[in-house]
Design a protein around this nucleic acid. Structure first.
Length: 677
RNA sequence: GCGCCCGUAGCUCAGCUGGAUAGAGCGUCUGGCUACGAACCAGAAGGCCGGGAGUUCGAAUCUCUCCGGGCGCACCA
């Protein structure tokens, strides 16, 4: 199955043709020929400013060069004409009928249908979500998971084999804190906690919600006593963390019980958004399987780590930070000044830091560590199993890791440690891997002060003056993911109930959920990654304008046309293959229809752009623009009452292609296309 | 102090490797449901793209500088 994208295909043809012309006419070999989509159709469908670039080299006016090139271009399949415009642009006009046939015949297909061998580009690993399993997921985690999941869909659509990982820090200070809360603040034993979990389940209380409050309470408790008391509490905190890290004791068992229960809740929450994982690697196994010991040897051997004898880091194993220089540390280069800025990887007490463990984990991701996790099944999705790491796993099991390219969906605040890990890989000589290590960074989701007040939080004068306030799990400040989803579904349900009076309860609920999820996913994807989202219910609960439901509504309209017409998109496209559409594509009155076909033919181009820039927002924008042009077309041309039977087929084919494209784009965004709404 | 990100219409944001009159949504005002569903469409108003300098045929986009806002710079994770 071959995917033909009108723009990609015609761009390729034009580029090659231009290159050949430049070669024969001027004896020039130009590698990259800039091509752009003109701002307006009256400039044609493709354009190049190449004549401007050549002006200096050829010592001629751009306009003259453009005229010479146009004269030499002659005829090219798929194009109707080339012309000079402005001070030296070369504008290309497409053969519209040919372009439309190309677009109509391109394969739609679901993302999974495109994984044919010739499209397989390699093995990618995407890590996203990675929520500390000690509290409920909040809107910040939603942005992470939705970005990550969408990018997974894009990679798969482009032909990559993708493993989805959700890294679980089940031994860190955050889990320790909630364990302290259970054991110390609430004074519960392991048996008590087991009983509590049962009670919560029976009474329908979400355990992650329970932990949300307890975690905030515990965090406060550390700072609410006398200085001596606080000191003792902190000691208790670190003792708890060490017991959890060591394992094989009751505290560790409590941590395991709590973190696993909360983790299951996170998977359930994400499943509501159609987000699934393949593997859950846990910190506890990275520790107990001694990943670090292997990494440490490699780091020492390659000279990335060196032992510091002087200064503030005396007694530590450290590495040079990326900013300080890209050369690996050389031995025997005489007395050198102590690098006070070096990053400590192994502390003077012999324990390893977060970055050190992360280096080991990333060596594993690329298959460079020489050791693997054990694997156990953990969570069953309708279509596949999600595995979790284990010290002693089950056999047989799938193999994870050993990827060629990795994407870490982690917020922008962690760019320094991420850069450290990349630097270490590069220093160890794994340059190809370092080049294919992408920190897929994104800015946080914060609350507008108004939203914070609305939720009943105490907001300081200082915070009220800010444009936005950072959410904080530690303070229990934020909007929980499930609360937001519940609220969205309630809002869409009210709309659906008002409109779909003929449908039963179950159907209406299903539609409401599809719309709610569409609204939420689109909301998180419409912003580019490095824009902070100042969250407000007013915007998130909007179903009009540039939103997911707007695009879904276009789909419903298109489907209704086929329903009323008593035909199907496939049947129409078959008929369409037998007619000549040229007459319906020319002239002012049909300009918008041609624009819609052009937009529909841009999907793969946009996909490639999204992948090369790691930016799903481009596809979100494309989906909206496509829906907008479709709505425009829908309003202006009445299809079912069209009297010219050939033109009616043409119009129906236009709807068929728009519908196909809308559905595919939405599916790549992880958004379903409802039958009605 | 060092590093990264941001500053575009009243508000929230797009703007592809520099390119043709700077776009969208929301909000405001006006108009359109007896035509395929109005969760829609059409129109209007609204901008020295934070300021300044530079690079060039050409800058919202690249460089420098200043101003304003955010986030990082642990032997925490």
């Amino acid at each position: 199955m071959r995917l033909i994208d009108v723009y990609l295909e015609l761009q390729k043809r034009l580029t090659e043709h231009l290159r050949a012309v430049l070669q024969t006419k001027y004896d020039l070999q130009i590698e990259v020929i800039p091509l752009e989509i003109p701002p307006d159709l009256r400039f044609g469908e493709l354009a190049t400013p190449i004549a401007f670039e050549l002006a200096r080299k050829l010592r001629k006016a751009p306009k003259i060069i453009a005229q010479e090139i146009v004269a030499a271009l002659g005829h090219l399949d798929g194009f109707s004409s080339f012309e000079v415009a402005g001070a030296g642009y070369i504008n290309a006009r497409l053969d519209r009928a040919a372009g439309v046939r190309l677009a109509a015949g391109s394969e739609g297909g679901s993302p999974s249908a495109q994984g044919s061998p010739e499209l397989t580009r390699g093995h990618a690993l995407v890590e996203h979500s990675s929520i500390n399993p000690n509290k409920a997921a909040h809107i910040g985690h939603l942005r992470n998971a939705i970005l990550g999941d969408t990018f997974v869909r894009l990679l798969r659509a482009a032909g990559y084999k993708v493993d989805v990982q959700n890294y679980i820090d089940n031994t860190g200070v955050q889990v320790a804190d909630v364990v302290v809360g259970f054991l110390h603040l609430e004074g519960r034993s392991l048996a008590d906690i087991r009983q509590l979990l049962g009670e919560l389940k029976r009474s329908g209380v979400r355990i992650d919600y329970y932990c949300w409050d307890l975690y905030a309470r515990t965090s406060q408790w550390y700072a609410s006593g006398s200085p001596e008391e606080n000191e003792a509490r902190k000691r208790f905190r670190y003792a708890t963390m060490h017991e959890i890290e060591r394992g094989c004791n009751e505290t560790a068992e409590v941590a395991e019980l709590i973190s696993t229960s909360v983790l299951r809740r996170h998977l359930e929450t994400m499943l509501r958004l159609d987000i699934e994982y393949d593997f859950l690697p846990r910190e506890s196994e990275i520790l107990h399987l001694n990943f670090w010991a292997l990494a440490f040897e490699q780091l020492k051997q390659t000279g990335v780590l060196y032992f510091e004898n002087e200064g503030k880091n005396k007694g530590c194993w450290v590495m040079t930070r990326p900013a300080a220089g890209t050369q690996p540390i050389q031995e025997d280069d005489g007395p050198k000044g102590t690098d006070e800025d070096a990053k400590v990887i192994v502390r003077s007490n012999g324990t390893v830091t977060y970055v050190g463990k992360d280096i080991a984990y990333h060596l594993w991701k690329f298959g460079l560590l020489g050791r693997d996790f054990g694997y156990k099944p953990f969570f069953t999705y309708p279509s596949h199993e999600c595995w979790i790491s284990a010290e002693h796993g089950d056999e047989p099991h799938p193999h994870f890791g050993g990827a060629q390219a990795i994407y870490n969906v982690i917020d922008a605040r962690q760019s320094d440690p991420q850069a450290n890990v990349i630097q270490a890989l590069r220093g160890m000589g794994h340059t190809a891997q370092a080049d294919h290590y992408t920190h897929f960074s994104y800015e946080m989701v914060a609350l507008t002060p108004r939203c914070a007040v609305e939720l009943g939080y105490d907001v300081s004068e200082e915070d009220l003056a800010r444009p936005y306030i950072e959410v904080s799990g530690r303070k229990g400040f934020g909007v929980k993911a499930d609360d937001l989803i519940d609220k969205l579904i309630a809002a869409t349900r009210a709309e659906v109930d008002a409109r779909q009076t003929g449908r039963d309860e179950g159907e209406r609920q299903r539609i409401a959920e599809q719309i709610a999820i569409g609204a939420l996913r689109y909301f998180m994807l419409k912003f580019t990654r490095n824009s902070v989202i100042a969250f407000d219910f007013k915007d998130a609960l909007s179903f009009e304008g540039e939103t997911g439901p707007y695009i879904q509504y276009a789909v419903v309209r298109a489907r209704n046309i086929f329903r009323k017409a008593g035909t199907t998109p496939d049947a129409v496209l078959d008929e369409f293959a037998g007619i000549d559409p040229a007459a319906y594509l020319e002239g002012e009155a049909n300009e918008d229809i041609w624009a819609l076909w052009l937009r529909a033919g841009r999907r793969s181009l946009v996909l490639e752009q999204c992948i090369s820039t790691s930016e799903p927002a481009h596809l979100a924008k494309h989906g909206f623009q496509l829906a907008q042009e479709f709505n425009n077309f829908y309003h202006k041309h009445h299809i079912l009452t069209e009297e010219d039977p050939t033109r009616k087929i043409f119009l129906l084919a236009t709807v068929a292609v728009a519908l196909r494209e809308l559905i595919v784009v939405l599916s790549w965004l992880g958004i379903e296309s409802p039958e009605a709404m």
